[in-house]
Simulated assay, not measured.
Amino acid sequence: MHIADFGDVQIHYRLDGDPDGPPLVFANSLGTDMRLWDPVLPLLPKGLRIIRYDKRGHGLSSQPDGAYSMGSLVRDAERLLDFLEVRDCVFVGLSIGGMIAQGLAVKRMDQIRAMVLSNTAAKIGTPSMWADRMAAVRTGGIEALAEATMERWFSKAFRETPDVELWRNMMVRQPVQGYLGCCSAISGTDFYTPTSGLRLPTLGIAGSEDGSTPPDLVRETVDLIPGSRFELIRKAGHLPCVERPEVYAELLNAFLRETGHI
C-alpha cells in the first residue's frame, strides 16, 4: 500500500505488474474502493504497469470536508499520475471513474492515450435526484441506499448469490463524508460539450442490466467521440467487471491490442 500526500488530500494507490511496462490506470465507482478490479487483474496480460487508487473520500484515501467538485477529483488523478511519472496510459474508468477519465482526457492529453468508459456517462442523473440521495444518507447513513443500489448494481441472478453481501458491505463501510462529497461532484457534472471535443481511442462498456447507467446512456456518451466503439455485456449490471470478469477482460485485452498498448 502507498499514500501520495498532496497536502489537501492523501491518495491511497497500489502498483502491480511490471514497473517498466505500459501503464494501465483504473478508477472505480461511487461506493467502492480499488478492490473493484480484483476479479479482472489476473486475466490481464503480463508486462503491464497496473495502477489503481482510491478516489478522495473512499477506501484508504483521506476524506476532506465539504462537497467535492469533479474538478478536484480530476486534479487528484492528474497529480497522482504526475507523481508516478505516468504518460500515455490507457485509463479505465467505471461510473464516476469514467467521468474522471473524461475530465482528465480533456485536461491532460499527454497523460492519456486511450480510455475505457465503463458504465458511465457525460452526465449521470439530475441534481434533484442526487439531492434526494444525499438527504437520505444524511438521515439514515449509506445503509439507507444499500438495497436500491444493489438492484442497480447487479443482475437478479448475482443478487441471489452470497457474493452480493461483499459489495453491499463495501458500499456501506465507505466514509459518509466521502460518499456525500462524490455525490455532489457527480450532481454538478455535465461533460457533454467537452467530451464531444475529444479525439482519442475510446471503448465504451455497458451492462445489459445496469440500473445506474443504462446501456443507451453509455452509448450516447461514447458516440460523442468519433471512432469510438461500444460493447454490451449481457447478464451484468453496473459492475460488469465483478459479474462477468472474463468477458470484461476479453474486451479490455482486445482494446489494448487494437491501440498498440500491448
Rank of each mutant, 00 (worst) to 15 (best):
R87F: 08
E246Q: 14
A121R: 02
D82I: 08
Q111D: 09
D163T: 10
S212D: 13
N119T: 10
P201L: 02
G125L: 07
D65E: 14
G57A: 06
I3R: 07
R108F: 11
I96S: 10
L166R: 15
I124W: 05
L217F: 03
G57T: 00
F26R: 04
M171F: 15
L239Y: 04
A136E: 14
V172D: 01
I112D: 09
R113K: 10
W130S: 11
G197F: 10
N28K: 02
D20C: 07
M150A: 07
Q102I: 12
P64F: 06
D110L: 03
I50Q: 07
S155R: 09
D216S: 13
R199S: 15
R244S: 10
A67Q: 09
E147C: 00
G93T: 03
T213D: 04
T202N: 00
L198Q: 14
L217C: 05
L60C: 01
T195P: 02
L73C: 15
L24D: 02
F158N: 00
L15N: 11
W130G: 14
G7W: 06
S72N: 12
F154I: 10
L239M: 10
V242C: 08
V74K: 07
T32A: 05
L256D: 04
R14S: 12
C182F: 03
L80K: 10
S118L: 11
